[in-house]
Design a protein around this nucleic acid. Structure first.
Lengths: 219, 219
DNA sequence: TATATAATTTAGATATAACTAAAAATATGT
DNA sequence: ACATATTTTTAGTTATATCTAAATTATATA
């Protein structure tokens, strides 16, 4: 498989949120930053290889083989991200682009050894689950901070938006995965939240709160 | 730079043994396993980019910028090889092909951090020197075992041929970098050597002996 | 339901990196 | 020094991955 083919497979997987959902040509084009006509060409090729189901004007979906392929690429991407953070002291906002390159390295043994070196991590630095050799993975708690009732406590388990700007904002405010927080109050006017975290009071906009995955805890 | 361009630069560098020697189109084609006509095309491109000096029918040589580029790729290749052996327990005959892929990953920070993780190694698993950030490197002792006088002792510091077959042969015979050996006798008939290594007597053909770099030692 | 709008595909073009076959330049041998 | 052999280049072709512009199909609306 070429890098380009792998990137298309990954895009379709993410757009369908990991299922075999049907995805439109335009949405793939948008995500890949290419033109729809380029997508059409590629879909024909991927279809010929048995990685996607594709019928003209009807959109695409991954075949089981396509899903397996996507999971393998995502496994590589996320393991490399863990490596960069854990072994090379990169920050979580720096790893995506390098992992985008590293995910295309072909060697199953390399990935299995890396997995072992890192002690078989189940989540990447952004809290996203890392598929195992056979595609299995632990579902992350997918509740957003914005959906949690006032007064409850939660632990931060992931980010929905993993753009560098958002991640650096979190760093600046000392919000990291594993942090415990308590929702003190919700401002009716703009839906912002006042939370208690790390002995501090912090105000988070609705936009922030709806990009943080949390797991509710009892105190 | 594309992967292909990088591979050509590396090929020219190795054929010229690291200098700015003039290299023929055919020899590049042979090393790259492509046709001479493909080489001609690429030389025009590399020349336009200021990486090689190229005049029709006159062969190519690297410019100073070309040499710098080559050293940077070789630095990456060799650091990754050390990583694979030291951190992921690969054997020295397995690392070349994976490093061939990893050497094209673009991130200066990644390489510098890797260098640090590995404790700034000066030689790769085959005894080849690893250029530093600025292209500087320690010349390895380039005497071959076949050139050493009978009766002298030496330490194994590298391999000239780093093909998997040769490396596995050395493994089978417990010859590794760092091993001390003494040349007991040279057989006139076929120039094979009887050496004393690791409390054993071993017979090495002229071909083997002329692919092992050693450093002479006094006892 | 006819028509307009949006989405998608086709056709034809470009750039990269390879190839083959033929032409041109250089090198070699008698 | 000339003919031959070798090397190298040119010209034209192929495959990948992209693009633009035009044509086609689907959908949404009046």
């Amino acid at each position: 498989m070429t890098h380009s083919e792998e990137n298309y497979i990954k895009a379709i997987f993410h757009l369908g949120m990991g299922s075999e959902d049907v995805i439109s040509t335009n949405s793939v084009a948008e995500r890949m930053e290419t033109k729809p006509s380029s997508v059409t060409d590629m879909m024909k090729k991927l279809s010929a290889k048995g990685l996607v189901h594709y019928k003209k004007y009807q959109g695409v979906s991954l075949t089981p083989l396509g899903v397996k392929t996507a999971l393998s690429i995502i496994r590589k991407h996320r393991l490399w991200e863990v490596f960069l953070v854990e072994k090379l002291d990169f920050t979580w906002d720096e790893v995506h682009e390098i992992a985008e390159q590293l995910e295309h390295i072909e060697s199953e043994k390399l990935i299995d050894k890396l997995d072992e070196l890192l002690n078989f991590p189940k989540f990447d630095p952004h809290g996203d689950p890392i598929p195992g050799k056979n595609g299995e993975f632990i579902e992350r708690d997918n509740q957003l901070l914005s959906q949690i009732p006032i007064g409850s406590s939660a632990i931060c388990v992931g980010v929905k938006d993993s753009s560098a700007v958002f991640l650096r904002f979190l760093d600046k405010n000392n919000i990291a995965l594993g942090n415990k927080m308590k929702i003190v109050e919700k401002e009716e006017f703009d839906n912002s939240l006042r939370i208690h975290i790390d002995q501090r009071e912090l105000n988070l906009s609705q936009q922030i709160a709806s990009n943080l995955y949390v797991k509710m805890i009892k105190l």
